[in-house]
Design a protein around this nucleic acid. Structure first.
Length: 196
DNA sequence: CAATAGATCATCT
DNA sequence: GATGATCTATTGC
């Protein structure tokens, strides 16, 4: 797993609607004190920044959205509904604020660790199938993991997946109430590990 | 199986 | 003071 190269910063320095479909099949790994956990991205969504009313960056720079306007290839983590953390990767050149929300993973490594963090998950399919679920399974939190460089070998990294490339399908995004019809959600066709 | 309520708090108005 | 890029448990058919 460590043998695969991380995706370079240039990969992220492009529009999120281009980066997102290419992230399907890529591998996220996270090292915590208790061990390593990793999964393959099977579902994600693009958020476009200034041209996208559903994006956090739409209303400009704030304390929370600061990293979104910085250089690409960093983590944007935030708390939603007071309970769950959501993981995004910053795209676009510095000054422009696109990002990709990771919505579901196919668990690959550290399954036992994930299981321990998500005692409510009864099946493997429930471990990482949702934005709040995967952060819980990996142990990612807003306070610890905001603004990490994911292009190196730090505790959070994203690596290119193995061939063959997955078949990707586009659908509208989930859980928002503006720009509802925009085709910016990307999933691996036929995956058992998607969110509902 | 589908619909719905409740949890819970950082961020923004 | 209102509002979420969600998840789970519970209720009802």
């Amino acid at each position: 797993m460590e043998a695969l190269d991380p995706l370079p910063r240039d990969f992220y320095r492009r529009p999120p609607e281009i980066v997102a479909p290419e992230l399907i099949g890529a591998i996220i790994s996270y090292r915590s004190r208790t061990g390593l956990a990793a999964g393959r991205i099977v579902e994600c969504e693009a958020y476009l920044g200034a041209r996208d009313e559903a994006a956090h960056a739409y209303r400009g720079v704030t304390e929370r959205t600061r990293v979104l306007f910085g250089p690409p290839g960093y983590s944007y983590v935030y708390l939603i509904y007071g309970i769950y953390d959501c993981l995004n990767f910053v795209t676009e050149p510095e000054g422009s604020a696109g990002c990709v929300l990771i919505r579901a993973l196919e668990p690959l490594a550290g399954l036992q660790l994930m299981q321990r963090r998500r005692t409510k998950a009864r099946r493997i399919e429930d471990l990482c199938s949702g934005p709040g679920r995967l952060t819980q399974a990996l142990g990612i939190t807003t306070s610890r993991d905001y603004g990490l460089d994911v292009t190196g070998s730090g505790r959070l990294s994203v690596r290119r997946g193995k061939a063959p490339s997955p078949v990707v399908e586009v659908t509208p995004r989930i859980g928002i109430n503006v720009c509802v019809d925009w085709p910016l959600r990307f999933v691996e066709v036929g995956s058992r590990f998607l969110s509902r």
